[in-house]
C-alpha cells in the first residue's frame, strides 16, 4: 500500500477521534437549543467552569479564597484534604444543577416570550459573568486534571497496524476513552428522552411549547432539567479537554470548534452533533495533511468553517436538522 495512503488512513482515524471531542461540546448546545430555542453562547464557559470546579473540589481548594483573603486579611487557600475523583465528579454535577436552577430563576424566567436574539444576548452576558465567577472562585492558575483517564499512544493499535501496513498508527488512549464516553453519553441521552417521563416532557417541549403547556408540563421545570443536562455534558467536555491541555481559561474557546459542527449537523439533532463532529474532524485533518503544507499550515480553524458553509449551501438546516417551513 502506498505510504501516503497509509498516512492518510492514520490522519483519518485521528480526525474521527478529534471530531468526537468537538461533538462533546456541540451536544450541550443541541440540548438547550432543542428544548428552548436558545443558542447558548455560554456552553464553552460552562465546560470551563465545570472543569475548574471539579479540579478545585478534588484539590480541596477554598472557593473564592482570593476574595475572602482580600476582605478578611487571611491567607486561606485550601482545606488541606483531597477528594477522590468520583466523589468530586458527583459534587460537581450538583454544582452544575444548582447553576441551572440559578440561571433559570434569575435570567430566563424573566425572559419568557422574548425574541430569540434577546435570549442569545442574555447567554453572551452569562458567558462573561460565568468566566469572571470562575476566576474569582478558583483563580487563574493552570490546574492538572487527573480523573484516572488513560493517555498516550495505544500500543495495541500501534503494533497491529505496524504488522498490517508496515507503519504503526498513533491513536491516543484519551481519544479512545472520549469516543467511548461520547457513545455512552449519546445512548444515555437518547434512552432518557425516549423512555423516561422527564425525557418525554423534554421532547414535548421541544416539539411545541404551547401544546406541552396545555397538557400540564411545566416549562420552567423542563428548562431547569435541560440546563442541568447541558451542565453535565459541559462537565464531560471539560474533563476530556482538560485532560488534554490542563484546566485553564483557554478551555472556554473550545466552543468555537462546536459552531461548525452545529452548522453541519443541525442545531436540533443529537446524532447530528456526533456525525457533524466526525465530518468536521476528518475533513479538517485531511485538508491539513494534504493541502496544509503547501499553504503554510494551521488550516484547521478556518477550514472547519469552510466545510460547514459548503454543507449549508446545499442543506441549510444541516445534515440532521429539521426543515423549517413557515406558512404565511
Amino acid at each position: 500500500m502506498p505510504e501516503q495512503l497509509v498516512f492518510a488512513m492514520e490522519v483519518t482515524l485521528n480526525g474521527l477521534m478529534t471530531g468526537v471531542m468537538y461533538s462533546l461540546v456541540a451536544l450541550g448546545f443541541v440540548l438547550i437549543f432543542k428544548a428552548s430555542g436558545i443558542f447558548n453562547y455560554a456552553q464553552g464557559v460552562m465546560a470551563l467552569f465545570a472543569a475548574m470546579t471539579l479540579v478545585g473540589i478534588q484539590d480541596g481548594r477554598v472557593p473564592f479564597s482570593h476574595v475572602i483573603n482580600a476582605i478578611f486579611g487571611t491567607h486561606i487557600y485550601d482545606f488541606g484534604w483531597e477528594v477522590p475523583a468520583l466523589l468530586a465528579i458527583l459534587l460537581t454535577v450538583i454544582v452544575m444543577i444548582i447553576f441551572a436552577l440559578l440561571v433559570q430563576r434569575f435570567v430566563f424566567k424573566h425572559l419568557v416570550g422574548q425574541e430569540p436574539i434577546i435570549l442569545f444576548m442574555a447567554t453572551i452576558g452569562l458567558a462573561y459573568f460565568l468566566e469572571g465567577v470562575s476566576d474569582l472562585m478558583w483563580g487563574s492558575e493552570i490546574r492538572n486534571m487527573d480523573v484516572g483517564l488513560p493517555q498516550g499512544i495505544n500500543d495495541w493499535i500501534d503494533v497491529t497496524t505496524l504488522e498490517i501496513f508496515g507503519y504503526g498508527f498513533f491513536i491516543d488512549n484519551l481519544d479512545l476513552a472520549a469516543t467511548l464516553i461520547a457513545a455512552i453519553l449519546v445512548m444515555g441521552l437518547i434512552a432518557y428522552s425516549q423512555y423516561t417521563k422527564n425525557g418525554r416532557a423534554m421532547r414535548a417541549v421541544a416539539d411545541d411549547h404551547q401544546a406541552a403547556l396545555s397538557v400540564g408540563i411545566s416549562l420552567n421545570y423542563v428548562w431547569i432539567l435541560v440546563w442541568s443536562l447541558a451542565g453535565i455534558v459541559a462537565l464531560v467536555a471539560g474533563v476530556m479537554w482538560g485532560s488534554k491541555s490542563g484546566v485553564q481559561f483557554s478551555l472556554s474557546l473550545i466552543a468555537l470548534k462546536a459552531l461548525p459542527v452545529l452548522m453541519l449537523g443541525g442545531f436540533t439533532s443529537i446524532p447530528g452533533a456526533i456525525v457533524g463532529g466526525m465530518i468536521i474532524g476528518v475533513g479538517e485533518a485531511l485538508f491539513e495533511f494534504a493541502i496544509g503544507p503547501m499553504i503554510g499550515g494551521a488550516t484547521e480553524n478556518w477550514f472547519a468553517y469552510v466545510l460547514a458553509l459548503l454543507f449549508l449551501v446545499f442543506r441549510p438546516q444541516g445534515l440532521f436538522g429539521e426543515k423549517i417551513i413557515e406558512r404565511v
Binding site: N14, T18, S245, L253
Partner: peptide, 12 residues
C-alpha cells in the same frame, strides 16, 4: 493555530 489546544495533526 491560536490558542494551540489542537496540535494533533502537527504531531502526527
Amino acid at each position: 493555530d491560536h490558542p494551540g489546544q489542537e496540535q494533533g495533526n502537527q504531531w502526527l
